[in-house]
Structure formats: structure tokens, C-alpha cells
């Protein structure tokens, strides 16, 4: 599978496509089954957020290597040009969700990955980058 792979998120189907691409790369770096499932689930949550709240965007999936530990991992960056997140701290609060029962807020998703980085600007968009390392 090619890395980095760019997957546009413009419909519900694309959530499934993001999952498949992430799973492919996670399997390629021989991530444990549990970790694969975690990162694919996180990607699924974030892809849906990008579509539903961000009004669509892109997911960039790539293989990365940690220079300090030599471990490999999968990094996924979601970008959209939607309304942004007005209160980031609130969005990361346990159990918080802005939509009508969609998503578990971002806190649950954050627990599924090793690195979680969120940049958002009200009115211009959101960029969320997550990384899962092999154990």
C-alpha cells in the first residue's frame, strides 16, 4: 500500500474507505490486532467528525518512524475547512459531544491513540493529527 495516502472525505462511504486504508497500513507495520482495531476505530470516529461537523475534508494516512525509539507507526491527519471548534477544552472533556448523539466527544478517541494533536480556528477549520506506534 502506498504511503502517504490521501483520502478525500466527502460522503459517508469515505468513512469506510479511511478505515480500510488505515487498516492496510497498520497491518503493514505489523501492529498488534488490538492496536490495529484501536487506530482504525479512532480513524473512523475522526473521519465521521470531519464529514459531519467539518463539512468534509481529507484524511492523510502515512507510515512514520520514531527517530528516538526506532518504532514504526501510523499517522493520520484530518483536515477540514469547517466552522472549527469554538471551545477546545470543552470538546476534549470526558463524555462531551456537540452533535445529536454522534461521536463521544474527542476524549474517547484520544485514548485509542498514542499521540493526539488538535489545531482549530473558529471559522477557518480544524486539523487533527493522531499517531499510533507499534508496541
Amino acid at each position: 500500500m502506498t504511503s502517504p495516502a490521501e483520502v478525500p472525505i466527502t460522503s459517508n462511504d469515505d468513512v469506510v474507505r479511511v478505515r480500510q486504508v488505515v487498516r492496510g497500513l497498520a497491518a503493514e507495520v505489523k501492529m498488534s490486532l488490538v492496536d490495529q482495531t484501536k487506530v482504525v476505530t479512532a480513524a473512523s470516529e475522526l473521519a465521521r467528525n470531519t464529514f459531519v461537523y467539518g463539512g468534509g475534508g481529507t484524511a492523510t494516512v502515512e507510515l512514520v518512524t520514531n527517530p528516538a525509539t526506532g518504532r514504526t507507526g501510523v499517522k493520520i491527519v484530518f483536515t477540514d475547512e469547517g466552522p472549527g471548534i469554538p471551545d477546545v477544552d470543552l470538546a476534549l472533556t470526558e463524555g462531551w459531544s456537540s452533535g445529536s448523539g454522534l461521536g463521544l466527544g474527542l476524549s474517547g478517541t484520544r485514548r485509542l491513540v498514542d499521540e493526539f494533536d488538535l489545531e482549530t480556528e473558529p471559522g477557518t477549520g480544524t486539523r487533527i493529527s493522531v499517531t499510533k506506534w507499534t508496541r
Binding site: V34, T37, T41, G95, L104, S107, G108, T109, L112
Partner: peptide, 14 residues
């Protein structure tokens, strides 16, 4: 339900 799925759901908080 597969073990990996169960673990992930618990971690996710669902």
C-alpha cells in the same frame, strides 16, 4: 464480539 473490538469499545468509553 471479538476481544480486540471489546477492548477498543471499553477504551472508547462506550
Amino acid at each position: 464480539m471479538r476481544p480486540a473490538v471489546a477492548i477498543t469499545l471499553v477504551e472508547l468509553g462506550l
